[in-house]
């Protein structure tokens, strides 16, 4: 990845925004090794334009833009839940004011636009083990990324996320 390239900049922007909405640091997100795969998934699923719009939204907005909700879930559980799977009310809230939510909140070009009923999918085998969920609850993914022989004899190593300010 060359950071001068547009692709590199977009990936960095994706990670930066993801850090703001997941509460984990950019360092932690890159550290999952999933940044490229998640960015590619988001682009493939909702299209470049919708993703750009989502990344330009206010990260503290509640309820979040449905694409943003999908991105947060993606980082936490490694599964892509399409934004159309968020309640229709949310979709309507995200589309332009005055629109009644008559059409799915997906831009042209995204796969979900072609098949809005696409089921959720795990992005990669490693997406499961790298989910932020595990770190958030102070556990490790069952059956994978075990903390090592004999670790059960010592207290669990729970990270203290209190010291990290959630932006």
């Amino acid at each position: 990845m060359t950071q001068e390239t547009t692709a590199g900049t977009e990936l960095r922007d994706f990670v930066k925004f993801s850090a703001a909405v997941t509460g984990f640091s950019e360092f932690d997100l890159w550290g999952t090794g999933q940044a490229e795969a998640y960015h590619r998934t988001a682009v493939d699923q909702v299209g470049q334009e919708s993703l750009r719009a989502a990344l330009a939204s206010d990260p503290s907005a509640a309820p979040a833009d449905p694409v943003v909700a999908s991105i947060i879930k993606l980082w936490y559980v490694g599964v892509w839940y399409g934004p159309e799977q968020v309640g229709r009310t949310d979709v309507a809230a995200w589309t332009a004011p005055g629109r009644s939510g008559a059409k799915p909140a997906v831009a042209e070009g995204g796969r979900a636009a072609e098949d809005p009923s696409a089921p959720p999918f795990v992005v990669s085998p490693d997406a499961y083990t790298e989910g932020l969920l595990w770190r958030a609850i102070g556990a490790h993914p069952s059956g994978a990324k075990a903390p090592g022989y004999g670790s059960w004899a010592t207290p669990p190593a729970v990270e203290d996320h209190q010291e990290t300010e959630v932006r």
Partner: peptide, 16 residues
């Protein structure tokens, strides 16, 4: 042994 696993995790974070 499990300290090695933790170091593996730390190295992975850095390298990525």
């Amino acid at each position: 042994v499990w300290e090695m696993f933790r170091m593996r995790d730390r190295m992975n974070l850095l390298i990525r």
